[in-house]
């Protein structure tokens, strides 16, 4: 029994880490714009509206604004972890400017890890757009995997289809892989300590356990 005790403690410790309750990670939804002269987005900010089970409507209380920063070439929206399994609809409002811009990438991240990268041509394809208001044109360039969007100056926004919303909002992380990695580190350390691959501990150490630095010491 004594022989197995370290293994039992290790197993319990790892189980504790895996079962330890942590808050669901936020999900980051990012749209990247290409930086060429026709692609840069003008305006002050973009806003992402989300509808939930209750209320199932877009309103200002359920919106996230992101300032347009053309040094970064992207807008990013952080959906709180508490919205996991609760998002029913997504609507993105572009700046009210008569302009043409180019979307070069769309991706979703959670817990600092890229969860899904969308092809902008697919993301902004007709079947994924439930409603488009004051959007004068969406032109995919499939070879370059970019999409050009022309907006008007009234109230340009896009409401995404239910299927796409389910897909986008289904990537909230529960830190499972992170927890498994922490356990892996602990387990490897445990066995590394037991195995002592480089063996210096057995050879050339003094009684205190330090490398024997005295004259004639092996190390």
């Amino acid at each position: 029994m004594k022989k197995f005790l370290p293994y039992i403690i290790l197993a319990v410790f790892c189980a504790g880490i895996i079962l330890f309750p942590v808050k669901t990670a936020d999900e980051v939804f990012r749209i990247e714009f290409t930086g060429n002269e026709n692609g840069v987005l003008e305006g002050t900010d973009c806003t992402l509206y989300y509808s939930t089970l209750s209320p199932d409507a877009f309103n200002d209380d359920q919106s996230i604004s992101c300032p347009v920063d053309n040094e970064k070439y992207y807008v990013e929206f952080r959906l709180d972890g508490e919205l996991n399994n609760n998002i029913k609809g997504l609507r993105i409002d572009f700046p009210a400017e008569d302009q043409l811009f180019c979307v070069g990438g769309v991706f979703v991240k959670s817990a600092g890890v890229l969860k899904k990268r969308y092809d902008p041509c697919v993301f902004f394809s007709e079947e994924n757009l439930k409603q488009a208001n004051d959007i004068q044109g969406v032109s995919p360039i499939r070879d370059g995997k970019v999409v050009y969007i022309r907006t008007g100056s009234e109230d340009p926004y896009i409401v995404f289809s239910d299927a796409l919303v389910d897909d986008v909002s289904g990537h909230f992380s529960h830190y499972i892989i992170t927890k498994l990695l922490i356990c892996a580190v602990i387990i490897v350390c445990f066995f590394s300590y037991k195995k002592d691959i480089f063996g210096l501990y057995k050879n050339g150490r003094n009684k205190e356990g330090n490398i024997d630095m005295t004259e004639g010491g092996e190390a």
């Binding site: 990670a25 600092g112 990695l181 580190v185 490897v188 445990f190």
Partner: peptide, 22 residues
């Protein structure tokens, strides 16, 4: 967004050394 991941990126080399020679 993920502190253990940040630690891993910042300390990959020392963490590796701890793993191989705990």
């Amino acid at each position: 967004d993920n502190i253990p991941l940040s630690m891993l990126l910042g300390m990959a080399f020392p963490i590796y050394m701890v793993l191989v020679d705990t």
